[in-house]
Design a protein around this nucleic acid. Structure first.
Lengths: 133, 133
DNA sequence: CAGTATCCTGGGGGATACTG
DNA sequence: CAGTATCCCCCAGGATACTG
């Protein structure tokens, strides 16, 4: 594993000054960890899906946010979009190799969090009790 | 690897209805992938640090956001905080075992993104050109 | 040194309505 | 079916000032 001490390496290849927002790493991270981006990636990892199938699998997502999220991920090259010209239109989404590459470590992180959510909640109660007294 | 098709599994252990915001997995994910949380975790992975050392290693972070982020991570049990009573005060932060556990997959994800940022940027230019014409 | 308190703004994202 | 368009609210987070 490489050295993480120099966080500034990540800003943009340059040191200091540069706000993290302009860092491409930050941007992609924001996209894949975005409120709905995560679930889109996870849902598509199970197989290609059409717009409304995807919507059905992600409880709570609005059409606006779903299409917005998809556009971002397509633009990043993580998701592909295929239109079959027909009436009614058929649009299918799926993961690109790049998307599968991003989804894997994301799934690992998510899996870790799921497995330790209990510990974390427990720590919080303990912490809150300690603060209360 | 497990099945990801049923995204609703993640909402809260329950199906449907529950907005993702209330899901503990979502909360912890938001904390560790938060604007400054990521860099705090990465910086502390290199060793324990005091408040201003940490600030120095994370370009652009304000004192407000640093302390706010630290409080969240301490509450989650991912970071510990040690106060040496003295004047001036010495406060040191470091990763708990839980924090190291979360930091590892996070670092993997970050590493993947760093290694593929080039490909992603390239895809974007290509995509933008395709849209322009 | 290690923070808190206060004020303020941008844009993420929800609700609703409309379209090819 | 697969989206856009519009309005609007909320709060993450920056700037600035103050404290034990």
């Amino acid at each position: 594993m490489r050295e993480w001490n120099q966080v500034s390496e990540w800003t943009s290849g340059q040191s200091g000054e540069v706000p993290h927002t302009d860092c491409p790493v930050r941007k992609v991270l924001d996209h894949v960890t975005s409120r709905w981006g995560v679930w889109v990636l996870m849902a598509l990892a199970g197989g290609d899906l059409r717009f409304h199938e995807l919507r059905g699998r992600i409880p709570g997502v609005s059409e606006k946010m779903l299409s917005q999220t998809l556009r971002t991920l397509v633009r990043d090259g993580l998701v592909w979009r295929a239109v079959e010209p027909a009436t009614p239109p058929r649009v299918t989404y799926g993961l690109t190799p790049l998307g599968r590459g991003a989804g894997e470590p994301m799934a690992t992180l998510l899996g870790w969090i799921r497995d330790h959510a209990g510990d974390i909640l427990a720590t919080q109660s303990e912490y809150d009790r300690a603060c209360a007294k």
